[in-house]
């Protein structure tokens, strides 16, 4: 019986066709794994994916235009090429509180501006006669013009609001000095009239106070002469520097 089983199994052989096909299959498998193409393709695909991701992120999250908004809360909105707010940067304590209280990111810049203007902190100050300055800075002239026009449209119903263009270089200087764009531009005007004034002198002032100061200097009076007129609004008097009368601010635009 042992012998019968042995002989029977002995007659079973792997068919030549099966063996040949298996050899061919192994050769294909070998060629596949040796060829660097698949590996390279995978790496390339990952790389493209990564680059598209990073590029898209950069493309979307890089502000192309800056909207500097100053009353005393100083806030700068970074607007990307799709006119959406992608960054909110506060330049003083009030600004920080304002930025924290509002959710402005990823909104259309006009909606963001409307929310800002409607916020208690800004609306209240405007009602008190404070000045709001909106400065638009951007490398892309088309966009910054468009954003400026949009900002003007948004604020058309408001008095005491002034919108203007700003310069990229000035923006950098302003940030270097720790001021927002609007305030820094006003400071530059002030400095042109009185070279002894430093950025520290204006840091704590509201836009109205700075404007008044400029107007006072322009009218030829000294700060000391105007001292008695100021300090009342909002209790933001600045030691050593008085602030002038309201002279309006025609011609700034």
């Amino acid at each position: 019986m042992d012998e019968r089983l042995k002989q029977a199994f002995d007659q079973i052989h792997a068919e030549e066709g099966v063996k040949a096909e298996t050899q061919a299959y192994l050769n294909r498998a070998r060629a596949r794994s040796r060829s660097p193409k698949r590996y390279l393709a995978m790496v390339a695909a990952c790389l493209v994916f990564l680059l598209v991701g990073l590029g898209g992120y950069q493309f979307y999250f890089t502000p192309t235009t800056i909207l500097s908004i100053d009353i005393n809360p100083s806030v700068e909105l970074g607007v990307n090429r799709f006119d959406q707010v992608v960054s909110v940067q506060a330049y003083n304590q009030d600004g920080q509180e304002l930025a924290d209280s509002l959710e402005l990111k990823f909104l259309d810049y006009q909606t963001a501006l409307e929310r800002l203007l409607a916020s208690q902190s800004v609306a209240g100050r405007l009602a008190q006669g404070e000045l709001l300055s909106i400065t638009v800075v951007g490398e892309d002239k088309d966009q910054s013009s468009r954003v400026l026009a949009g900002a003007q449209a948004c604020t058309a119903g408001q008095e005491n609001v002034q919108c203007c263009h700003g310069d990229m270089e000035v923006l950098e200087e302003a940030h270097h000095a720790g001021l927002s764009m609007g305030k820094y531009q006003a400071f530059l005007e002030l400095q042109a009239l009185d070279p002894t004034i430093t950025t520290d002198d204006v840091a704590g002032l509201t836009m109205r106070q700075i404007r008044d100061w400029i107007a006072a200097l322009e009218s030829g009076g000294t700060a000391e002469e105007q001292e008695s007129q100021t300090g009342g609004s909002g209790g933001r008097g600045h030691a050593g520097n008085g602030h002038g009368h309201h002279y309006g601010w025609g011609g700034y635009e």
Binding site: I12, H13, A14, E15, V18, K19, Q23, N27
Partner: peptide, 19 residues
């Protein structure tokens, strides 16, 4: 990974057993 000669030998040697 084993070479072609090695796998061919194995197919010859163990093909019948596997079959």
């Amino acid at each position: 990974m084993r070479g072609e000669e090695e796998t061919n030998q194995a197919i010859e040697r163990y093909g019948d057993t596997v079959r």
